[in-house]
């Protein structure tokens, strides 16, 4: 019987695959790599593409990953798959958006508005409390 290793494919949002396999072929950043059991430790990033797993017994399974990280230990292969397509400029755009939101919120800042808001909330709470107390008093009377 062929030697096997354990393969885990996970994404941040769910577990995709977990089981024993004879060979794993993955789209590494420098070109496709085939991993057999007892491969030396390796760490590489993945390109978007297809991961092909030859499971114990010869059955094949293909899983699409949109990039990620591949870690190889002699008997364990771990693929940390991305859920979104990652690219430097896309990340940059997301970061810009987050920053803009913070700046927008800062611009919107008007202390009087906040104060008025807080005051109205306080008045509301006091009124509610008074109402409850009034009701309670009425009942006890």
């Amino acid at each position: 019987m062929a030697m096997t290793m354990h393969v885990n494919i996970v994404s941040a949002e769910q577990e995709i695959f977990s089981g024993t396999a004879e060979v794993v072929v993955a789209p590494a950043a420098m070109g496709e790599v085939g991993i057999y059991p007892r491969h030396t430790q390796m760490l590489t990033s993945l390109k978007p593409g297809e991961v092909r797993i030859t499971k114990q017994g010869g059955e094949e399974e293909a899983i699409y990953v949109s990039g990620g990280i591949l870690e190889v230990q002699p008997h364990v292969v771990t693929i940390l798959s991305d859920t979104a397509v990652r690219a430097q400029d896309l990340d940059e755009a997301a970061a810009m958006e987050a920053k803009q939101k913070a700046e927008q919120a800062l611009k919107d800042r008007s202390d009087e508005m906040d104060l008025a808001d807080a005051q109205s909330q306080l008045a509301e709470a006091v009124a509610q409390l008074q109402a409850i107390q009034r009701i309670r008093k009425k009942i006890s009377r």
């Binding site: 420098m30 990620g68 940390l80």
Partner: peptide, 19 residues
């Protein structure tokens, strides 16, 4: 022991640690 890094340690670790 150390990993084999592809393409190089910096790029891979960057990606890994950010994730």
């Amino acid at each position: 022991w150390d990993y084999i890094y592809e393409p190089d340690a910096k790029t891979v670790l960057d990606g890994l640690l950010i994730r």
